[in-house]
Nucleic acid binder design. Structure first.
Lengths: 191, 191
DNA sequence: CTTTAAAAGTGTAGTGATTGCACTTTCGTA
DNA sequence: TACGAAAGTGCAATCACTACACTTTTAAAG
């Protein structure tokens, strides 16, 4: 965990290389022809490995799409913990969410369109995102000195994360985000 | 077996009969050996029909578990619309949720344990439940004279329904429900 | 009472994701 | 340099689900 970069042995390099080749091939093919119209065999072929190898690198077909699982969780926890004085937790989370509404490059837009238009992927992405719920909930609980499983804290974390899904339907996501978090903030502050 | 409610032709009766046989066989096998360890072929065999027929009656394996899709939606909408004077919408929804926390027969308990312990089923059930979101949101919007897609209304509906999932982790679900809805009510009333 | 067309059901053969197994190749290291 | 773990391979199998062409049943019209 302490080593940030990995200039390690040739072995690990090759492994990462194979993994990358798979992810790249997958993404390219998915964007070209749509997720459902690409088989794992085609991806394996395009990356010049066997299907067996593919499944040694990725837990399933969906996992090929979300290769980079960065430190989004750390940012969320930070938004809860390191907020500026006088700012409530929901407010800080709101700012963080508003900030992370990218206009984005056309590539990212195409990617998001694909994910959003493929039920399996949409669900998978949602599950991934919601995986941060407990971490955020614990951060909140720590801030207010409540037990880790405090209902209000868990609920706030859950609702805050769910907001991301809700705002997708609106023309002005930032405005929608603010309205939702205003509701949460009022409810939270009343406690 | 007797045609008390639906005195229609023999054809429809046989169809319903087949469907029922499939659902019954599925439920029995699932409870006996667990969802993942029963194949659709076994279910079809147990109901003495072909696999093809099975899929003409049910859209997929998960659908076999949730045969009765009653009028839960109507009750939810009613909780929003027909609440007693002076009671807020979140309060009424809270009461409805608390009321619907059944201790339940041992059969139901076993059923719920199975659903909850099988990721595929858990997700499926959640999707089914969340399908009522728009109906509830529209009912709320109608009550307050807002447009159907008003952010606050949609968010309230969403969060209220999500509560069901949140409370499952707690020893006292009713208490948890009340705390969550108190948060929502405070936020909602502040608007 | 016959005819007829849709509905219900069947069996076969396929696709596509995913797993298990036994095997070879490739490194890192003692 | 030899050895064991890790990476990769190919094959066969399972399982959900679909497409297709087929037979049987039944409702309803003639």
């Amino acid at each position: 965990m302490t080593e940030s970069t990995e200039p390690i042995g040739r072995r690990e390099r090759k492994k990462a290389q194979t993994r990358q080749a798979l992810a790249d091939a997958a993404l390219r093919l998915f964007l070209e022809r749509g997720y459902d119209h690409v088989s794992v065999k085609e991806i394996a072929d395009a990356a010049d490995v066997s299907v067996t190898t593919l499944f040694k690198h990725f837990s399933g077909k969906e996992a090929l799409v979300f290769d980079q699982a960065e430190d989004i969780e750390a940012e969320l926890v930070s938004a809860v913990r390191d907020r500026r004085p006088g700012q409530s937790i929901p407010q800080s989370l709101c700012d963080h969410m508003v900030r992370s509404v990218h206009g984005g490059t056309p590539e990212i837009t195409a990617f998001l369109r694909m994910v959003d238009g493929t039920p399996v992927l949409r669900d998978y992405a949602h599950r991934m995102w919601m995986r941060h719920e407990t971490a955020v909930a614990q951060a909140i609980a720590a801030e207010v000195g409540a037990p880790d499983d405090d209902v209000r804290c868990v609920a706030l974390a859950h609702f805050a994360l769910e907001a991301r899904h809700l705002i997708k339907a609106y023309d002005d996501p930032r405005q929608a985000t603010r309205e939702i978090f205003a509701l949460l903030d009022d409810g939270w502050s009343a406690g």
